[in-house]
Amino acid sequence: MRQLNPLERQGEALRYPPGDLAVWIFILAELSVFAIFFAAYAFTRMQHVALFDQYQATLDRTSALYNTLALITASYFVVRAVAAIRENRAAQSRNWLWAGVGMGLLFLVIKGAEYAHHFAEGVRLSTNTFYMFYLSLTFFHFMHVILGIIVLAVLAVRTGQGHYDAASHTDIESGASYWHMVDLVWLILFPLVYVMH
């Protein structure tokens, strides 16, 4: 059955990834949107290399670093939450999920400060093509972080209420996969928008 932990059958690989297949289809759809956005960024940059390089330099790479570390850490916490529920340790699983939520919130705060800074400088979507992409891409991702945090929080509450155990925790696996997707996208976004030139 699908609830089974992939590790319990290490010999024979699974046909489907952990979590609900419907969620994975959703993840694929989301990844496609981001892929198009990344490609659009890169190909538009071809026409405006100097402009992109110039304004990329105005971004705060160190904030982005903290944010990357926060998301990776959140992902790791979520991995621990899944591992814990697989061993029937629901309370621990819940705590790891809350820890993941905390890291997500940290991301929002840092990113929010970055936005505040840019807006204070008068940067808008129409300022130039680079800022248009920077704001669009990061904000679209920002919305995903918010959604991911909501998912994790709901899972944490439900885990605390004893809805999941080692035999049945597909929801946690689904939510975890979604969160990893949010992390994965940022791992591309960070070098692409902040570093590569």
Binding site: P6, L7, R9, Q10, A13, L14, R15, Y16, P17, P18, S75, Y76, V78, V79, A176, S177, H180, M181, D183, L184, L187, I188, F190, P191, L192
Partner: peptide, 19 residues
């Protein structure tokens, strides 16, 4: 970046054990 993404997929998402 791609390597990091691959690690996330393989280990965190657990796709290593999927065929």
């Amino acid at each position: 970046a791609l390597l990091k993404g691959h690690l996330i997929g393989d280990w965190f998402m657990g796709l290593r054990s999927v065929r």
